[in-house]
Design a binder for these strands. Structure first.
Lengths: 253, 253
DNA sequence: CGGATGCAGAATGTATACAGATGAAGCGTC
DNA sequence: GACGCTTCATCTGTATACATTCTGCATCCG
């Protein structure tokens, strides 16, 4: 993936985009201290592009929510309280709920329904494996695809755009917290619950049951809630949470 | 280069911010043809700042949703279908519903509750006037304030930020479509319904009735829905809709 | 000893020059 | 007369120079 990008970086990919991707990576990997100012000149020498693309990237990452404007000028790496992370997940659940309801009320296309069904079937196969043998990476990939298809079924550019913004916060994206489950003894139990919700929401959409579809997606997001709670109490599980370095942790007993 | 008058005017306001405000105004007033490319150099001579601030403003307005990136480079004025406008309003309703629910579940502060109550009381006075004498401008102002207070009661930066984004689309903001009512014979009727919803949502929040508060705010947004439908069928009412020039209208019988 | 002031360094905001690319218009040929 | 090619103008993307502002530290005064 990255190789392909580098391969064609001479033409299609502008310096601005490259700077944006590289900067995001730096922020998410915690190589820039949270709360600290992001110096343009330092980024110039670190990313190998001039100030103009760096500035563009900074502005875009601020809009994306990963950076914060400093009143006196410039940007700093944003930090998130535990409360904010929970709220971001809740927000995603609400928006995905809206997407599911719209899909149900408007009616999804046959191809969308079939794609979603195929996706669920593939996940069924992954989950059916013994707990020790589960291909979590594949599950994460399929899960992300299912959520994308769902958003597509709502057929709303406006909503899709907003959901993109929420999911830009790495810990709020649909499958961000799935890996945390891998450390849990209840993993296969949680997975089958989540998977059942996938089945149910698709059934609800097919039957035009908007309210039910919405409710299921909201509850579905609450699984991420629970996973996050687990990660917050078990220090070592935080490694599995993307962008965890941005989360300003409270002291816990 | 900077004139003394402008310098004293606002030293704090950067050229970028000025360009952003001016450009947004140009777009919203329809002085830039929707769908057309926004030339940087033209904006330079029209806004009186150099290319750099213009570029910054363009990027920010794209993130804001008023402009659209052209694949080959540059930006164009975005157009919205009627469907998208309805969806934006629905989205705002959903998010405000979430805000109301959070406010109810978490409990609002006494000062917030009192401010909201005061705001409603002031609106009551405006609405109580005879239909012919209503100070619509004041109602719009109070309405906007009430919605702001409500968002504040949810006490969620993440949610507030998202709502800001949705309301950036001018026709989706809470009181954008109120003026359309002024041309309606049912104005005072609609106003009192909306006002009753204000009363009810506040009561629900006070009593910690989250589900009810959420449902009310969703339905509250549907009033904007109805106003928009009116404006779309009555050509002349479209003048009252902010940013109406961006709406790509379908042919209607 | 503490606080204020002034200076130096750096960082940002802004302007502009340059290069590659894109799109259109005009000319030539079939 | 139409189609295609070439050329040119214009635009964006990028780099860099300049000016103003902010920050941090050291020094000086109360």
């Amino acid at each position: 993936m990255i190789k392909a990008a580098e391969k064609s970086n001479d033409r299609a990919v502008t310096q601005t985009v490259r700077a944006q991707l590289a900067l995001r990576e730096l922020v998410l990997r915690g190589e820039l201290n949270p709360g600290e100012r992001v110096s343009e000149l330092q980024m110039v020498e670190r990313l190998g592009v001039s100030r103009t693309p760096v500035r563009m990237a900074l502005v875009r990452l601020e809009e994306e929510g990963l950076l914060e404007a400093i009143p006196s000028g410039g940007f700093s790496v944003k930090t998130f309280s535990e409360k904010e992370v929970f709220e971001a997940i809740e927000l995603r659940g609400t928006l995905e709920g809206l997407a599911a309801r719209l899909a149900a009320e408007r009616g999804a296309s046959r191809t969308d329904l079939r794609n979603a069904a195929d996706c669920i079937t593939a996940m069924d196969e992954v989950v059916r494996c013994g707990a020790a043998e589960i291909d979590l990476l594949r599950y994460v990939e399929l899960n992300a695809r299912f959520h994308d298809i769902l958003i597509g079924m709502a057929d709303s550019q406006v909503l899709a755009r907003q959901l993109e913004r929420v999911s830009a916060l790495p810990f709020a994206s649909p499958s961000a917290l799935v890996p945390v489950q891998s450390r849990s003894p209840e993993m296969s139990y949680i997975l089958s619950v989540a998977q059942d919700q996938h089945h149910c929401v698709l059934a609800a959409i097919e039957r035009r049951e908007g309210a039910r579809a919405e409710a299921i997606m909201r509850e579905h997001a609450r699984i991420a809630h629970r996973n996050l709670e687990r990660a917050l109490t078990n220090q070592r599980d935080m490694d599995l949470v993307p962008g965890s370095v941005l989360i300003k942790r409270r002291i816990r007993a």
